[in-house]
Design a protein around this nucleic acid. Structure first.
Lengths: 348, 348
DNA sequence: AAATAGCACTCTCGTTTCGGGAGTGCTAAC
DNA sequence: GTTAGCACTCCCGAAACGAGAGTGCTATTT
């Protein structure tokens, strides 16, 4: 497939670059003039004919300029994937913003979403890191009213969950505290699997709470529906979405979180931290994204806590800018998550 | 201002109703035919002329039908405000959904947003109830690593806040528990103001934590930036937003939460629970909403915890449906919040 | 043989032209 | 006060049109 001559390659890359900037079909004349090439428009036309033949380019109609096909974009992306660099200035600005924010997961997520969206002029998506092997750290049981009890469950990694329980009969704070104390010594540092395989406890209250804790652990997995997004109005700025129907179909994805989750899950399971993935035109699988591309990365600490983040834009998006940016932000977030986790691991 | 003859009134209301359905300027002929009135088109023309004179109607251009002005809509809304009823069937469906959901505030908010959006075909906005007089209930201090401490603050009303503190020097869990115990007896049931006016505590650690608690209380106020929205793609379905620039400006509001907050705050301070407010065309104050209307209601328990909810749609929205629906959902949520709070108040 | 200049051809797009149609306001009659 | 009749205005969509841009092919140059 990669039997392109050097000249065809140059031409293809230039044309796509130009199209990305102008959003207009690119003709031979325009190409020759803009990039003062040392061969004539006729030659360019011949080469473009060849590239069209090979499936990299397309003509919207006879006697219009050429437009890249999905295949063309793929070639373009694979060419630049490892070349593109984020300007140092931008790197500093972004890094600065992160280190100035309050050191809370939620802050980081919204910040990441906001930065990605504004810098890429696309829609950003960030999922909270999903703890892969949650470990128990601490529990508190606080009696509130009669049979109601507030349970606060703290995980290693700083994740905190609270829940209001209704017991079958009133229990004194005294007894609750003792249960909590026993569970805390018993469970400290254990994973779901370890807890699940414990023998039944003698005290029935202890056992009941233990079951609830397990349930809560299980919830963690499905809890990744916390998706932060930003910048969906950016999409409306793009000429390809000036007809509202197209735009609506695309934005709809961000309302029906399930499609989005599905997409993120499917595309990131086979990619590892640090590796980017670029979906072009929905890759035949997501009809709603036929006009779009997505740059997706996984971040976090493999085996411990990982999340996904990415940018959606028109297929015509500025990959040269988006790709390194997604990569950079993913790196930053990975570091932050890493710090949080290792801090927490020191404890005992 | 309300010197309309009975006939003018009928005509005005019919015309607006028709325009809301058809999105087309309405002419005298169409009106006469569709609603078999017992007077002629010429009469209608005369009356429409008068209504135009009075500022209720507008002609997009000579020899087009009439279109309601903002003033016209206002009249329309005030006429139907107390008449419109939500069909019982719909009431049951909605109520059913609420009672089937898990009894958590977050669930209710998202559910309310989702119902409002899908039923009204507009964009919905729901803010979490803002506790007006937060009362202290309980604190837990959990030592994690070295100088880091997890503070869990429980309010009456079930609101729970957690925060990781970094102390200046390591403190044993023993001492933390004692501090927590002292504070719990001292502060139980107190409001912000009461806590703020306490004399300085003798133990410096106790005092430090107290200060932090106060800070957290203050955060509650500004914490109403939890805004749930849904259905923003609905807006793109409307013909008046087929040009993406208009749509973009409108949807932008939902990204810049600050404008939205401002708007909700300003318009609801002077309205009381149960009362609806209808903003038409941005009321001159919100340029971005010139094409839109919003139906807003406050819900909750006055003096305790109140939130806001509403629907944004084109000025041409179906008020007859939206108004009673917003009112109904606000009522439901008020009841739910009320139940939660009174439960919690029984405690001591 | 590869590159280029020239040329005829095609197709889009913005503009202009033009009638049909809908709706109005006015006047005169009921 | 209401209505019928009528001349007038203005929008809108269709058709016509010309400019412009781009192409593919062929003959020519290097």
């Amino acid at each position: 497939m990669n039997n392109l001559t050097e000249r065809q390659k140059t031409l293809l890359l230039l044309l796509i670059k130009d199209y990305i900037e102008s959003a207009q079909p690119v003709g031979s004349k325009r190409l020759a003039e803009h990039y003062h090439l040392n061969f004539s428009t006729a030659t360019i036309r011949n080469e473009m004919g060849a590239l069209t033949e090979m499936g990299y380019l397309r003509q919207p109609h006879t006697s219009a300029g050429r437009v890249p096909t999905e295949e063309g974009y793929r070639y373009f992306v694979s060419e630049m994937m490892n070349k593109a660099e984020l300007p140092e200035g931008v790197q500093r600005t972004i890094s600065h913003q992160f280190h100035q924010s309050r050191p809370e997961l939620e802050q980081w997520m919204t910040l990441a979403a906001s930065i990605l969206a504004s810098q890429s002029q696309g829609v950003s998506v960030v999922t909270a890191p999903h703890i892969e092997q949650a470990k128990y750290k601490h529990i508190e049981l606080i009696s509130t009213q009669g049979r109601q009890v507030l349970m606060v469950l703290v995980m290693m990694g700083g994740d905190v969950r609270q829940q209001i329980l209704t017991l079958t009969e009133p229990v004194t704070q005294e007894r609750l505290s003792q249960t909590a104390k026993r569970l805390n010594t018993l469970l400290a540092g254990l994973t779901v699997d370890a807890i699940a395989s414990l023998p039944t406890l003698s005290d029935p209250l202890d056992q009941d709470i233990l079951t609830l804790i397990l349930q809560d652990f299980k919830n963690t997995a499905s809890r990744s529906n916390e998706i932060y997004t930003d910048g969906f109005t950016n999409v409306l700025r793009e000429p390809e979405f000036s007809e509202s129907e197209e735009a609506r179909k695309t934005l709809k994805i961000f309302e029906e979180r399930s499609t989005l989750q599905d997409l993120l899950a499917k595309t990131t399971t086979n990619s590892n931290i640090g590796g980017l993935q670029v979906l072009i035109g929905g890759e035949g699988e997501w009809e709603e994204l036929r006009q779009c591309s997505m740059v997706i990365a996984r971040y976090g600490v493999p085996g411990m806590a990982t999340g996904t983040l990415g940018v959606l834009g028109p297929m015509r998006m500025s990959y040269a800018r988006t790709i390194p940016m997604v990569r950079y932000v993913a790196g930053l977030l990975s570091d932050l998550v890493n710090d949080t986790i290792s801090n927490e691991n020191d404890i005992r």
